[in-house]
Structures are given as C-alpha cells and as structure tokens.
Design a protein around this nucleic acid. Structure first.
Length: 636
DNA sequence: ACGCGACTAAACACTC
DNA sequence: GGAGTGTTTAGTCGCG
C-alpha cells in the first residue's frame, strides 16, 4: 500500500521532487559516497582515521539509525521498498541529523588529536628547524585536517542538498553557523590559526592553495566551496591528491541544477516567491537580489524559525499526549525511546534554518503501536507509516480528502503554514473552491479570483499552475454544486450548498478501517493533514487567535470523513445525540458504524467526528457559525 | 472485481 | 491569433 502510494505520489506529482530526489539521493550514501570512494586512494599515511574511514563510518550509521528509529529491524532496502519517497526522505533526514552529530564528534576528536600532534611536532620542530621530514609531517597533518574539513563540508553539502540543513536564504556564502556546535567555525578558525601561526614556514604551501586561514572558514561553509577554490585543485607535493575527488564532488553537487534547497523546478521556492529561474545561476542571482539580507528576508527567516521551533515543541507535547492516550487505551506502549529524541537531533540541525520543506519530517512513531490493537492486519505497514507524519509535497488526494480536517478551521489555523509551505492542502479542489467562494462577502467569485485565492492561500498552488487551474475549471464545470452566474462584470461562480451537501453522501463511519487509516495513515495525506492541524493547535500561537485554538482546532484536528465542516459538523449541532459519544476504548474495541444515509438525511445521520466527540467534549459549532467565528480576515 | 470519487491531462469551443 | 474561460472526455488511482 505504501509502495503504491509512493508511486502514485510520484506519478501524480510532476513536481514531486521532494520525495523523488531524496529517494534517489539516498542509496549512494547521500551522494557523497562517490567522492569518498576516490578518497580511499589517498591512503593517508598518518594512520589516523582517514576520510574513507570517516565515510565508512558515516555509511554504517545508516542502518543503525534506521534500526534506532524503527521498532522492528528493517533493512534500508526494505524501508525503501515500503516507504514512500517523502517518508524515506524524512527518515533519512533524521538519520542525517544523527550522523551529523556523530560525524562532528569524530571531527572534533580528530582535530583535537591532530592539534595535539601538531603541538608535539612544533616542539620537535623547534629543535630541528626547517627539516624536510618535519615539513612533510606537518603537511600531512594539515592535509588530514583539510580532508576532514572537506569531508565535513561534503557531508554538510549532502545534508543541505537533502534539505536537512538549509542555507540561510539570501546568504549564499554564509557559513553554517547554526549547525551543531561540535565543530564550530570559530573553533576551526582558532585551530587553524594556531596551526598556521606556529608554522610560518608554510608560506609556500599557502601559495599552492593551502591557505589554511581562508580555507578554514570555507570548510564549514558548503557554499563557500564555490567561492574560494580549495586546495584540492593543487596536488600536494607528496603526491597525495586525495582531496581532489571529494572536493570536486562537492562542487559538482553545488553546480547541479536544482541542488539548492530553495530552488526547484525552475522556480524560487522562497516562501511566497515563485519567480521562474532558468538555471541555478539565474536563481542565485535572483536569490541575491530579491532575497538578500534585508529586513524582509530576515523577518521571513525568523517566522520560519518560529514555525519550526513551535512545531518541534508541539511535537514533543503531542508525543507525550499520544503516549498518554495510548497508555490509556491499553495499547502497546510505544518504544521506550522518547519521541523527542530523534526529533531533537533533527532540530539541532534544522532549528534555525529549516525551510518550510523541512517541516518536522523526522517525526517519530506515535502511530506505530497504536495501530496494532485496532487493526492487527496492518502491523506491517503501520511500522512504516509511523515514520513520517509530515510528508512534504504531493499527498494522496484520497487520503487527504477522507480524513482531512474541516477546511475552514484548518485553514484558519494553518493558513500561514499553507501560505508558506509547499505542501499540498489536504482538501479536494471542490472543497477549496467552495471555501474560496464562501469566504467572500457576496459568496461569489470569478474564476480568476478563485485562482488568486488558491495562490494566495497556498504556496503549493504557486507552481504547476496549468495543472491545478485546469483542475479548478474542471471541478467548477463538473460539480453541480458550482453554479455559474452571469454577472455585470462577467461570469461568477457560486456554491449551491444543497448540491454540495448532496455531492458526497457520507461514507466515512466509525469503521475499523477508518480508525486504521486515521492512525496508520499517519504517514500520508490524511493524517498528515490531521496532524498538521494537531500541530497547528499550538504551533502557531502567534498566528492564530488563541480563543479559537481549543475549540476549533480540536474539531479541526479530529474531524474525519469529510473534507469540510459543513457536512460533518452540522448534524452535530442539529442533533447532538445523533451519534454516540464514544470513549476511545469503545471506539477501538467496538467500532460503531454510523449509519450511512443518503444526503437527504443529512440532518441527523451525518457521521460525527467520532474522535472529536470521544476525546474532546467540545461543542462543535455549526458550519456557518464556525466559519463566522473563524478569523476569516486572517485567511485573506 | 466493481463502482465511485478524485485527480490529471487533454481536446475542443467560445469569448474577448 | 492568443489568452482566458468553460465543457467534456479519458485514463488512472485509492478506497469501500
């Protein structure tokens, strides 16, 4: 199922670069593997950990990390087969975060060791000034340092390319200051200064490109690689040209079109920007001009940082809550490992730099065990689906449609998110169109205004315009609920609510399948949406009216079965007792089928959001009421 | 297996 | 003629 979803995702998403690219990047060890392989030929004579060994270490971490995150032992190959690209990407990003830390610990240790050795050599060097052997040894040390730095740089490149570490927008040459501090640029700088200060002899080396001082800062900045030519261009006197490959590899990655996290499919992916750029070069120009380091860009960055931080905090909270819920439901407790652990690793790398695309990808596995008691049949896939709650990019329409939250409430809560994140909204076109129309005072919109609403509200619809616009038109024409009215200005579209309610008789019930999908489907659209809403509950405290968080988000998060409020909530209001209020236990053990009724009976028999009523004794407002309560002004 | 809804793509017609 | 709009058909997919 997940495999299918993956393929479907790719198929149905011409822009589905997130999953695809990451998937293709991963198997070879993050792309850096190629470079590292040639580094093996270097055969560093120092006997220290060679770049190859480092790479080997790095590669070895992958399965380990997978095992760490997976409740069951799954090989990476299996993971690849089962996981969809976005899921894989999320998983791998988690791994990368872990690897990053581990690697950097290695780097640090190595550098400390080398530093020690260098000091020792300096002592000896004072007694044997300017001896050839010493020079060679120093060279070797420096080479090794450089190798490590280049490896680190390469690794960072990989991470950056995969979106784990993103470049501060508009600052193409800014070092990765926000990386985990195991090796911070200043440390390296200091180390290099000490090394170079102790060895004024190395002028000649510097002239050959071994300008350590400048190289230092470069080494921690992946972007700097393209700015200042690294030493690898110059074979070292002792014949070791080991740095050639990694370096070239790194720069080749840099030059790969679309390798920039903010550049994809010929468009600038800066939040709110969709400028077309033919190639990376043009994009970089655009980036430096349009998104330079100015107040606006920094403000946007700050917002993004806050979003990420809030999400991470919220994830921790929600994880705890889930644990408690599951414990309460007598479900198999989730893995002893704290949910926040992997996340923290991720956050350490993405906290302040994550783009919207790197939303909590590394989400842990709340649903893993939750699935088992409810749908034992789904144990296999449930493991997988647990890995990612937030898949970015195209999502499965059906899922998202089925389980998505009430569009108005979720939009109200997450409009900032959808505005900026390139995430497909978990609503059908029809519901989106309806929402757009209903948001207007006179409840009518021209086609172009509908377009504008889409692009204004969703970053996702700022690209692939031909596709979704066609879909919008198609939906307008296809569905009877959309009525075209000739106006003075031209044609406007309105919504026939009655038709809209009739459009889709309630299908979703409290069936086990629903629960199964609600939970095990976490990895994708539906839960994606639900979880987004859940996260949004407190992820955007600054962006949403606090007064509406508790009520609307509760319903928004948990509503199932309909893609919008109107069809789901109304009957609750009209007849609060129409649907049984179930405790979670009841729900899981005795799934209740809400009678499927034709649309005519929508007053009473519409399925209620079972989970919502079960877990939140909130008074769910009427659709209209809800919409009117929502800060609609925020939406536009 | 089948039907249905949703989505995508495409062709075509019409209007400005 | 081209762009925008509107309609329709076909194919695919996920789901019940």
């Amino acid at each position: 199922m997940m495999v299918e979803s993956a393929s479907e995702t790719i198929r149905s998403a011409p822009s589905g670069q997130n999953g695809v690219s990451s998937l293709s990047n991963q198997p070879d060890g993050g792309g850096g593997g190629g470079g590292g392989r040639e580094g093996a030929a270097s055969g560093d004579s120092n006997g220290e950990l060679s770049p190859v060994e480092l790479l080997h270490f790095q590669q070895q971490q992958v399965p380990v990390s997978v095992a760490m995150m997976s409740p069951q032992m799954i090989t990476p190959q299996q993971m690849q087969q089962i996981l969809s690209p976005p899921q894989l990407q999320a998983l791998l990003q988690q791994q990368q975060a872990i690897m990053l830390q581990q690697l950097q610990e290695y780097y640090k240790k190595q550098q400390e060791q080398l530093h020690l050795q260098l000091l020792t050599q300096q002592q000896a060097g004072k007694q044997q000034p300017k001896e050839q052997p010493l020079g060679n040894k120093q060279l070797a040390f420096q080479q090794q340092l450089l190798q490590m730095q280049q490896l680190q740089q390469q690794h960072l490149l990989n991470l950056q390319r995969q979106g784990l570490v993103s470049l501060p927008p508009g600052q193409g040459t800014v070092p990765l200051q926000t990386l985990p501090q195991a090796v911070c640029p200043s440390d390296l700088q200091q180390l290099w200064k000490e090394v170079t200060a102790a060895q004024p002899v190395e002028d000649s080396i510097k002239q050959e490109g071994l300008d350590l001082t400048t190289n230092t800062s470069n080494s921690t900045s992946f972007s700097a690689a393209k700015v200042s030519p690294p030493i690898s261009h110059h074979p070292l006197p002792n014949g070791q040209s080991t740095m050639h490959t990694p370096r070239r590899d790194s720069s080749s990655h840099e030059e790969t079109p679309g390798s920039h996290p903010l550049y994809g499919h010929g468009e600038c992916k800066w939040p709110g920007c969709e400028t077309l750029c033919e190639d990376l070069g043009q994009f970089v120009k655009h980036l430096n001009t349009e998104h330079a380091l100015d107040d606006r860009s920094t403000a946007q960055c700050r917002v993004q940082m806050q979003v990420v931080q809030q999400l991470e905090i919220q994830l921790a909270k929600e994880s705890e809550r889930l644990q408690a819920m599951m414990a309460h439901l007598h479900m198999r407790p989730s893995e002893p490992k704290p949910f926040s652990q992997p996340l923290n690793l991720v956050s350490s790398a993405t906290l302040s730099k994550s783009t919207s695309d790197t939303f909590p990808d590394g989400l842990p596995h709340p649903p893993t065990s939750a699935t088992a008691p409810i749908t034992p049949l789904r144990q296999g896939p449930s493991v997988i689906s647990s890995s990612t709650l937030h898949s970015v990019g195209p999502i499965r329409r059906r899922n998202s449609e089925k389980f998505c939250t009430p569009i108005s409430s979720e939009l109200a809560q997450n409009h900032e998110f959808y505005k900026n994140a390139d995430v497909r909204p978990p609503f059908t076109y029809a519901s989106l169109i309806r929402q757009a129309i209903l948001e207007t005072p006179d409840r009518q919109l021209t086609l172009n205004e509908i377009y504008n609403w889409f692009t204004r509200m969703f970053a996702y619809f700022r690209r692939n315009t031909a596709t979704w616009k066609n879909a919008v038109r198609h939906n307008l024409s296809l569905h009877k609920c959309f009525v075209r009215v000739e106006n003075v200005k031209g044609a406007v579209w309105t919504v026939d609510e009655h038709e809209y309610q009739k459009r889709r008789p309630p299908k979703m019930t409290g069936s086990p399948t629903l629960v199964k999908n609600m939970i095990s489907g976490l990895g994708y659209g539906a839960l994606n949406a639900s979880y987004q809403a859940a996260l949004a509950e407190s992820s955007f405290p600054l962006l949403n009216s606090p007064t509406m968080i508790n009520t609307s988000s509760a319903s928004g998060m948990l509503h199932v079965g309909h893609d919008d409020v109107s069809s789901t909530v109304e009957q609750v209001n009209s007849n609060g007792s129409s649907s049984p209020r179930l405790s979670p236990q009841q729900y899981s053990s005795h799934p209740v089928h809400v009678k499927e009724e034709p649309a005519e009976a929508e007053d009473d028999s519409r399925p209620v959001s079972l989970l919502a009523t079960a877990t939140q004794n909130v008074t769910i407002p009427d659709d209209r009421d809800l919409e009117e309560e929502l800060p609609v002004e925020d939406l536009s």
